[in-house]
Simulated assay, not measured.
Amino acid sequence: MHKVLRIFGAAMISFVMAGGVVAHADELAGYKAIPLINGPNKVRLQDHDVTVVLASRENFNAHGFTLATFYLRDKGDDGKEAWSLVPVFEKQKGEENERYGVTISGGADCVLHDMRLLSGGKSQPALLIIANREFGQSYADDAPVHFDYYELTENEEGLPGHPAFYFRATRSTKARANYCDVDDAFDKELHLGP
């Protein structure tokens, strides 16, 4: 039903959604993290032009946030090039939910939610990894961190309710240790830098 975008027919990587599985950096061999900055970021993912926009929402307190949205340039129904929103389809309690962006947020002490976008070159699907820290007693606590993995997927068969391109949930893992800041978890657990 789902076809992962790929070039040259590389072998498909599939993961089963499994809560509680421990994260391992060696699973990301061959992937490269794409640095993103505030504003539009033009990247090339699996032979497609993708723009990632990071925009801040100031609260005038310690809890402002950034929203990351994804857009892909492809041919529309009329055969002309068009920009399409690339949503994130996550699985929760057996149901699929669609999100139109990823929130990066926290407090003055620690970042509780962040993401990494990874390119697998031409042989592996692009990955989006979202890290979420449980709140705990406060923003400044060390608490469990969960990594949710998504593959850039093409809806070639026209699955109803899904766009032409989207990030599809593939699995979840848990960091080995507790962290205050998810960027520390990305660095120490997956070697994806702060």
Rank of each mutant, 00 (worst) to 15 (best):
residue 62 A to R: 04
residue 67 L to Q: 05
residue 67 L to G: 09
residue 47 D to Q: 05
residue 53 V to W: 04
residue 81 E to I: 10
residue 102 V to H: 00
residue 127 L to Q: 02
residue 106 G to M: 09
residue 70 F to M: 08
residue 145 V to E: 01
residue 77 D to I: 08
residue 72 L to K: 01
residue 133 R to W: 11
residue 98 E to D: 15
residue 32 K to Q: 09
residue 41 N to D: 01
residue 83 W to G: 04
residue 142 D to I: 15
residue 83 W to T: 07
residue 185 A to N: 11
residue 9 G to M: 15
residue 53 V to P: 04
residue 101 G to E: 11
residue 28 L to G: 13
residue 58 E to S: 12
residue 118 L to S: 10
residue 178 N to P: 09
residue 74 D to H: 00
residue 61 N to R: 02
residue 153 T to W: 05
residue 166 Y to N: 04
residue 166 Y to V: 06
residue 91 K to I: 13
residue 124 Q to P: 06
residue 6 R to H: 14
residue 150 Y to D: 06
residue 50 V to G: 05
residue 157 E to F: 11
residue 50 V to S: 06
residue 129 I to L: 07
residue 3 K to P: 11
residue 3 K to L: 14
residue 105 S to C: 14
residue 162 H to I: 12
residue 63 H to K: 06
residue 48 H to A: 13
residue 14 S to H: 11
residue 145 V to Y: 00
residue 39 G to R: 08
residue 7 I to R: 04
residue 166 Y to D: 12
residue 3 K to Q: 14
residue 118 L to K: 13
residue 68 A to F: 14
residue 32 K to T: 08
residue 125 P to L: 07
residue 179 Y to L: 03
residue 28 L to Q: 11
residue 117 L to G: 08
residue 162 H to F: 04
residue 147 F to R: 01
residue 109 D to K: 08
residue 171 R to E: 04
residue 166 Y to K: 01
residue 58 E to P: 09
residue 148 D to G: 02
residue 177 A to G: 06
residue 4 V to H: 03
residue 24 H to N: 10
residue 13 I to Y: 00
residue 84 S to N: 12
residue 10 A to K: 06
residue 17 M to I: 14
residue 11 A to L: 10
residue 5 L to P: 07
residue 100 Y to I: 13
residue 132 N to D: 15
residue 82 A to M: 15
residue 102 V to D: 13
residue 106 G to F: 06
residue 71 Y to Q: 08
residue 95 E to M: 08
residue 28 L to M: 15
residue 62 A to V: 08
residue 9 G to W: 15
residue 92 Q to V: 08
residue 183 D to V: 11
residue 184 D to C: 05
residue 191 H to N: 10
residue 29 A to T: 12
residue 194 P to H: 07
residue 167 F to C: 11
residue 31 Y to F: 01
residue 128 L to H: 00
residue 17 M to T: 11
residue 189 E to H: 11
residue 10 A to D: 08
residue 102 V to W: 02
residue 118 L to Q: 14
residue 80 K to M: 11
residue 177 A to M: 03
residue 115 M to R: 06
residue 110 C to Y: 07
residue 4 V to M: 10
residue 161 G to F: 03
residue 94 G to R: 10
residue 11 A to T: 12
residue 57 R to T: 05
residue 193 G to C: 02
residue 159 L to R: 01
residue 126 A to W: 03
residue 158 G to I: 08
residue 141 D to V: 09
